[in-house]
């Protein structure tokens, strides 16, 4: 398990290539990447992500540990950035490795659902009109019920 919280961009290709490399017992690797999305009506200048140093790492480790207990996983990787980002930049990625794909897919979705509303990150969108904190969506909270 590897948890990384950093300001700098990460190299998705290098991370995905190195993840679970050489693990001949892992038949499936799933990766997800979150990307800063531009706003359709009000062009986004900057997405600023704030986090709670210390609790962030602790929360991500807890979520990744729970995923490892629920599914048969060989490895888990979570990288999440903070600070200012522009549209098209990669915000975060998760990767899961498992002997079979069902576990790898389910664990990746579980990780995403939980880190969206249980890891202490907050997004602020800065446009030409001003700055707004992104509100949490009810559906993000509801998504946890399926686990």
């Amino acid at each position: 398990m590897r948890i990384v919280v950093q300001k700098a961009p990460f190299d998705f290709g290098a991370e995905a290539g190195a993840f679970a490399a050489g693990r001949t017992d892992m038949g499936a690797v799933v990766t997800f990447t979150g990307v800063v999305r531009d706003l359709p009506d009000d062009p986004l200048k900057v997405m600023e992500i704030e986090h709670y140093p210390g609790m962030t790492e602790r929360a991500l480790e807890k979520i990744a540990t729970e995923a490892s207990e629920r599914w048969n996983l060989g490895d888990v990787l979570v990288i999440h950035r903070f600070g200012p980002m522009t549209p098209g930049e990669q915000i975060m990625m998760v990767a899961t490795a498992a002997p079979h794909r069902v576990d790898a897919f389910a664990a990746a979705e579980f990780l995403m659902d939980y880190l969206k509303s249980r890891a202490p990150f907050w997004k602020k969108e800065i446009t030409g009109d001003g700055a707004d904190w992104v509100a949490a969506k009810d559906e993000d909270e509801a998504a946890l019920d399926r686990w």
């Binding site: 979150g34 609790m55 880190l115 509303s117 202490p120 990150f121 907050w122 904190w133 509100a135």
Partner: peptide, 10 residues
């Protein structure tokens, strides 16, 4: 003790 709005990670 920390106070904050609902989280918006991912």
């Amino acid at each position: 003790v920390a106070f904050f709005p609902p989280m918006t990670g991912g």
